[in-house]
Design a protein around this nucleic acid. Structure first.
Lengths: 215, 215
DNA sequence: TTTGTTCTGTGATATGTATCACCAACTATA
DNA sequence: TATAGTTGGTGATACATATCACAGAACAAA
């Protein structure tokens, strides 16, 4: 099967609710792109001209402040899009977020100026945009809850469970330092908390890998 | 002028982008309601059957967790609506938020089941829904930034400035205890920080009132 | 193997915030 | 006026987390 044909199918299977004409139009206007694992596909401050429709792989969306602090907001999976790129594009503002792939990821890049036309032209696109906002809003609320109400050990546990769920594996490949960044904490704190969890038997620690057990 | 006529006008001046037919239909389907100052108009856990269009006054939207902790997410001003009620209503879930008036507030209550029809029928409604998500998303991000990156004194300063901006006055009527609740902190901490700010000359403290000066 | 780098572990200490205890000032209500 | 409730001030203390300092282990490159 040709690459064109595979991409064609990926778009339609991941976004089954799009009308055929819409999917066709997306293919004409958009551009297929592949990113390697751990590649930064959007930096803070960059101007956004595209919305990404995720076809395969996994993307992490981070929030950053001016001092270089960051934390993980949520993941983007196939069939999902980034609500923030829609927000910013609409206001012609710079991106307040950073996006990085977790594994090799294929996306469809759609120019934002075309999007607004589709909203009135295709009901399925309108519904998709609404649904995108809705789910991202929900995810953001959960993240906010964690930061506002939970202590670091609870947040760490939530972080690991979420990583397991989206990556569908008990072997989380990540360093303590990275986790610390994504929770806006420090490595030492994360290391100590992980050690405690290992002693409780919830997981076991290896270099660059955390193996979840009874979590 | 009759009350009906006044409400009629309020709806149209605060939501000027609504088509005439839409505004008319809203009036038929919806219900005008007035709340006193400091009245709780939605509790956590309550099921949402209405979206509120704010006509006059000011509303605070709080997030609560299961242990009764709360914090202020953002304000709703005339011309705005609560994106969350749309999210929840769509999923038939209980409200994860609490809403309380700051001053006497008039709203238009719109049943959520009718809303979905309007989205396809009226372009202005569709745009309004999108815009509501957009602005709430933005506000939520700012709140998240504060909780994640800022220390309590910075958050307190932001809190006071925001209160001044939405209420358009330098005399903020609120107790230290309430501020502590809204920042998910404790009264003693807030009192001490306020004292420091008073010593710096940024404000002066009175019973139940904080007078902002050079902030 | 050697060397340099990244990752992890751990003690000591600093700091911000929460909690406890108590009192004084003010306000509302009987 | 008496009394109870609310609000604000402040010291003492506890606790979670951040920061500093340093060392050893695992790995990669030469």
């Amino acid at each position: 099967m040709s690459i064109q044909q595979m991409n064609h199918d990926l778009l339609r299977t991941n976004y089954p609710l799009f009308e055929t004409e819409l999917a066709d139009e997306i293919e004409v206007a958009g551009e297929y792109k592949t990113f390697k694992a751990n590649e930064v596909l959007m930096r803070k401050g960059q101007f956004i001209r595209n919305t990404m429709l995720v076809l395969t792989g996994l993307i992490k969306i981070y929030r950053e402040d001016d001092d270089g602090n960051e934390f993980l907001m949520y993941y983007l999976k196939p069939g999902e899009a980034c609500a923030l790129s829609m927000v910013c594009a609409a206001k012609h503002e710079a991106s307040p977020i950073m996006a990085k792939t977790v594994v090799e990821t294929e996306v469809m890049m759609v120019p934002v100026d075309i999007m607004s036309e589709w909203a009135t032209k295709y009901k399925s696109w309108y519904l998709f945009v609404i649904e995108t906002y809705r789910t991202r809003f929900d995810e953001l609320l959960i993240t906010l809850d964690n930061v506002a109400f939970r202590s670091m050990d609870e947040r760490l546990e939530f972080y690991l469970k979420r990583a397991r769920d989206v990556q569908q594996t008990n072997m989380i490949e990540i360093s303590h330092q990275e986790i610390a960044n994504e929770l806006n904490s420090s490595r030492e704190v994360i290391s100590r908390l992980l050690k405690k969890m290992e002693q409780k038997g919830s997981l076991s620690l290896h270099r660059n890998v955390i193996e979840l057990k009874n979590l």
